[in-house]
Each structure stands twice: as C-alpha cells, then as structure tokens.
Nucleic acid binder design. Structure first.
Lengths: 218, 218
DNA sequence: AGGCCTAATCACCATCGGGTGACTTTGCCG
DNA sequence: CGGCAAAGTCACCCGATGGTGATTAGGCCT
C-alpha cells in the first residue's frame, strides 16, 4: 500500500486491479452467478467452495457468510430455478391448434426438448439428480415435476384423453425419452445409433417421439 | 516382527490377519472386483485409487502395477462389460411369438428395463456417461450401442417395419425412455409424477412404453 | 477527528486425492 | 546355501479440498 505513494501515481486509471466492491448484495450476486456458471459449465464435479470463490473473485469465507456454505448456495440456485418449466416453456401453442391429446403430447415433446437444449444449467442439474440423492436435489426434482404437471394442466385446456389411456405414465415416458436424448447428446452426440448433433438430427428425434406420443392416443 | 517369538506362538491358528495372498492373478482379481463393487455401490464419485486399494485390501501401488492406474482399471471393467447387452438380455422370445414389429419393440422395452434394473453397475456407468466424456466412457457407450443394434438385428428375424417408419429413431426413443426411467428411479423413486418403486409401478411404466412403441408401428 | 459496523481478506488447519521411489518379504531355482 | 525376480508394503510428495478464527480495510455517522 505504501508503494502507491511514489510510483503508482503514474497510473491513476486503475489498470487491472478490480478492487473489491464492498457491496454485500452485489457480492452475493457475483457468488450466485459464479455458482450457476460453474454448475452449467462443468457440472457438479466442478462445483466446490474454492472453485466458486475463485470464479466469483472473492474469498470463500463470504460463501459461508452469505449463503451458509455450499448447501445454502445450492438451495438458492435451486430456488431460483423452481419455476423453470413455466418460465422456459412457452404457453402459447405456436399458432397451432391442439385438437387432440396427441397434438398436446407432440407439442410437449417439442417444447421440452427445445427448453432443455437451450439451458445448460438445467441439464447439469438433471444429471446431478441421477448421480446422487441429497435433500436439495430432491427438492429441485420435486419442484420440476410439479411444474411440468402444471404446465400440462394449463395447456390441456378442455381436451380429454381417450378412456383407458394412462396419461400420467404416458406423459412420463415422453418426458423421459426427451430428457435422456438431450442429456446423452451433450456428452456423446448420439444415442443408440441415432445421431444427435445437427438441427436435422433433432428434428428427426423429436419427430419420432411425436409419432409415438400421437399414436399412443389415437 | 520379533514380537512373534515369545507370545505369538500361543495363537498358531492365524486369528484375523488375512495375510497377503502373494498370488498375482488373484490379487488382480481382488482389485478388479473391488473396482466393480465400488463403482456399483457409490458410482464414479466413490471411485478412486485409494478407495479401490482400501476395498481390495492391498496397496494402491498394485493398481498401478497391474492395471497401469485407474484408467487401466476402468478399461478392464469396461472391456468385461462389452458384451453386456448380449449377456443380460435373453435371446428367446419368452414363449411369445413376435408377430409384428410392434411386438418386437414392446419386448425390447421389457427386456431392457429388466436388465438395467437387475444390474447396479451398468446403471452407474450409464450415469457416468452422462456426467463426463472420457475416452473409456466413450468406448463403453459405443460397445453398448453396437450390442443393442446386434440384439435387435437378431430378434428381428424376418419381421419388416412398416414403410416410412424411422426404425433407428424409434428404437432410440424407446431405449431412451426406459433408460431414463430406470436411472431416475434409483435416486428419486419416481419420475414426472410417475412412481417407480414397486413391481406394479414398473409394470405400469413398461406398459406405457410398450403401448407407445406398438402404436407407432401400427 | 474519532469510533464503529461490516465487507472482505488472510493465514491456517486437517484431510484426502493421485502418484512415485525405495524398501521388505517371499518363493523358487540353480 | 546364495541369490534373484516377483509380490507386496511403506513413506513420502504435491496439490486441492472443505472449513474456521483472527485480522484488515473501508465507509458512514456523530
């Protein structure tokens, strides 16, 4: 600090030093975003106190102070993602009329695939959910399941499924297929011989899901 | 060591000490099995040189000597699992006739679900594949994809799919749905509101997949 | 100016991870 | 018996991790 008296005055424009902000909410925000980014980029493996602090450009102690540790940070991120389905899956019907329950399922597959493919963070969290079972994760999964259910409820409108169709199970299957395909695509770029890279690949995959969903309700 | 002269002779029956085996192949086997078990129980997170050595009851150095490190061990395990699909999915038709392509897909879903549910190790590896992409993992995934393709080829016999059906994509979707459901069941016990615990739950889920698969080929 | 609250950092701890070189034991073979 | 190669163990190194107590530095208010 005393070195600034003589020579540092020659560079008054604060060259690189990114001085600490000394603003609690802003620092909280930086930590939060660092956590999100880290999770989105490297998954839960790259997620740790030290890594987050490094990325946020502050001391890890602050993570404990402001979030009560990693668990608290995860909770905060999870809470922020609670309404993810509603936020990221549009409610309109994209100009189409949903005349049948099959139409609805087809649209669900499309939208869900698009939403997942557009959001790295949620993909990582989905994988995380498969890797271990902790309270936070369970809560997040639960919130998402409820969100999906609500979304379907809203989109359904007055449509009624054919008698004898197990809509809960069929919904789950459609969602499961889409989800697995998207997750697998990230690391391997294909699944069971089906390439999943280009936009055309995805059109093909979604079309297959749609065909099955539609047929199941015919 | 010199303490054995006077007092240790009173316990000649080797009470607890599990002396080292000094048999290379057997020790290799113990390491191998320890790796498998560790992977099956705790997933790739619990998998490490120290953990394997601990479980195998030997020094970790031997892992480097006999397998060339963790990577080598993973390769060995992966190689052993190469023909997994063929080994664990029966070839017969369980007394049924597969009259249509839809029958085939339904049977595929059933068998694949059973096989996955019966094998913790393969489930962990599947999750691992979603979590990161390393050469080993890629090789394992590839081998499995080929195995599935071969199995279908064999089961198919002389059945021909309807014209206009994208069999590769439809296969992938069925496999994807089953896989996601099985993996999700392990940690959360349900998926998108569909419970996946009891045998009845599974019958319901597989039935939904089967209905969709069958319908898609109708 | 002095004091005070608090944001932020520093220094440190124990632990565990992967990895390596030197060492000891054992059985076998001439 | 002597010795030698193989099986196995020990003792380290290094870096990174989660976690904590003490300390510094900055703004604000009287």
């Amino acid at each position: 600090m005393n070195a600034m008296t003589a020579e540092a005055v020659e560079t008054p424009a604060a060259p690189e030093k990114e001085l600490p902000v000394r603003d609690r909410v802003q620092t909280q925000g930086r930590i939060f975003q660092a956590g999100r980014a880290l999770l989105a980029e490297g998954g839960f493996q790259a997620f740790g106190v030290n890594a987050v602090a490094r990325k946020a450009g502050c001391d890890k102690q602050l993570i404990y102070r402001y979030f009560g540790g990693l668990d608290g940070l995860v909770d905060a991120i999870g809470e922020d993602l609670a309404g993810w389905v509603m936020k990221h899956v549009p409610e309109d019907q994209g100009g189409r009329f949903l005349l049948t329950y099959g139409d609805l399922m087809e649209r669900l597959a499309e939208l869900y695939a698009d939403a997942l493919r557009a959001d790295p963070l949620i993909r990582r969290i989905l994988v995380w959910e498969l890797s271990e079972s902790s309270p936070h994760i369970a809560r997040m999964a639960d919130a998402r399941a409820k969100g999906i259910a609500q979304w379907i409820e809203r989109m359904r409108g007055s449509l009624t499924p054919p008698k004898g169709a197990d809509t809960v199970a069929l919904n789950a299957v459609v969602i499961a297929a889409v989800q697995q395909l998207v997750l697998a695509a990230e690391t391997s770029g294909s699944f069971a011989g089906l390439p999943l890279k280009s936009q055309k690949d995805w059109a093909r995959a979604v079309s297959a899901v749609a065909r099955m969903a539609r047929a199941a309700y015919a």
